[in-house]
Design a protein around this nucleic acid. Structure first.
Lengths: 220, 220
DNA sequence: CTATAAGATGACCACCTGGTCATTTTGTGG
DNA sequence: CCACAAAATGACCAGGTGGTCATCTTATAG
């Protein structure tokens, strides 16, 4: 990969400051419009040093990108494991709440994610889009397949269509939490935790009504 | 509004060339990264002239923006009127097909739309997001309300949630048609018309199964 | 054909960018 | 305290930006 040993040798405090500032910068401005000069000013580190650490702006972004991917991967794995014994719709509920929680903790990473979706001038965008598909395939697909096998989901549904729909609805829910006017007048935008809890509940109940088997194994 | 009389006085041919080039440029590069120099080179018109016509880069974008909004508005109105007598799900089907058709005809406008969703450095972005909400409220909401009143939709569903879900699924369907790897392995990306026809049909059938009343007034 | 107004033009400006590298500062072992 | 290496620095560069405006070209009217 790109050589960042020089950067890795820095004091943790300095490293964190650089990472935080860079994430912020890329989240706010995308790739092309992000300014290494500004990052240098904000971190108090000479521009030359930043280029010594990462080679190029793209190298710096590569590092941030990998960092973010790893964070997301860990989160998905964790949620998947923690909810393994739950009912299908309960898992969807947990996934949505985990998504909101992740965004709360790492808003700038999510902002970068949203920008990369439709902004072609990001480096590694193809890799990024492939990873998204992989995440969806590795996370949602097996979840749906298990849901059908367990009888939580109506047996007449096409797995791919369920995955596609869930992906769309869940993504949109998270987007509406971050972008004004993308909610359906439902006050999703920057809703406080207790309101989110109810919104997620309502949405999942709605999904259950459309996708759930009539008499599932569980109660409710 | 911003003064564009100077531009309006030009020969239609010249006007169209400018509009087409500008739409292309903003679609490819967003706002900040779009270059008036490049547009001048591509149209063969002096940069100074472009600034005489539109005042600023923002003025030029304002014109393109209004132009695009008007196009979309007309399209929505037309589809809504043309499908007024159809069954609810038939209308959704028609809307999706009309969406794909619009994107085929105006791919760059749709690209600008996608970029504006998450790129904050566009001028008029708040206005844009409000318009989106308005379109959704004026288009999808009454459609769903009529669908429920007509008994096409299950009566126990919450209108807002149906609108939210449809919005999410339909938007995602169109996005998947334009961005690779956003489809659920379903080959939506840049699918040819006949494939789109089938995909839309499958999706709508799927939606009908989840949202439709058991015994609607019509056949099928 | 001329006088005048309207329009087109591109050199120019200040500013910002990613990236370089000679120079200075700092850290370390003896 | 020194010597030497490693790290930090910011002036500098070429190239691009949005925007201006004196100058030139064109069209029109008398």
């Amino acid at each position: 990969m790109t050589a960042t040993e020089r950067f890795q040798r820095l004091k943790p405090e300095k490293k964190e400051k650089i990472v935080a500032t860079a994430i912020d910068e890329f989240a706010r401005y995308g790739f092309r419009q992000a300014s290494v000069n500004r990052m240098a000013r904000l971190t108090g580190i000479a521009k030359g040093s930043l280029f010594q650490y990462f080679g190029t702006k793209e190298g710096l972004f590569r590092f941030i990108f990998d960092h973010a991917v790893e964070l997301i991967r860990r989160n998905l794995r964790r949620v998947k494991a923690e909810t393994a014994d739950q009912d299908f719709f309960e898992r969807i509920r947990s996934s949505l709440l985990a998504g909101v929680s992740f965004i709360r903790k790492h808003p700038h990473i999510y902002q970068i994610y949203l920008k990369m979706l439709f902004q072609e001038d990001f480096p590694f965008r193809d890799e990024f889009l492939q990873k998204i598909r992989l995440f969806s395939a590795e996370y949602l697909t097996p979840l749906v397949e298990k849901g059908m096998a367990d009888g939580d989901l109506r047996p007449d549904l096409d797995v791919h269509l369920v995955v596609f729909t869930l992906d769309a609805v869940m993504d949109r829910f998270l987007q509406a939490h971050c972008v004004p006017f993308l909610d359906g007048n439902a006050g999703l935008f920057q809703a406080p935790p207790e309101r989110v809890e109810k919104q997620v509940g309502d949405l999942v109940d709605f999904l259950r009504r459309g996708l759930g088997a009539e008499q599932p194994s569980g109660r409710r």
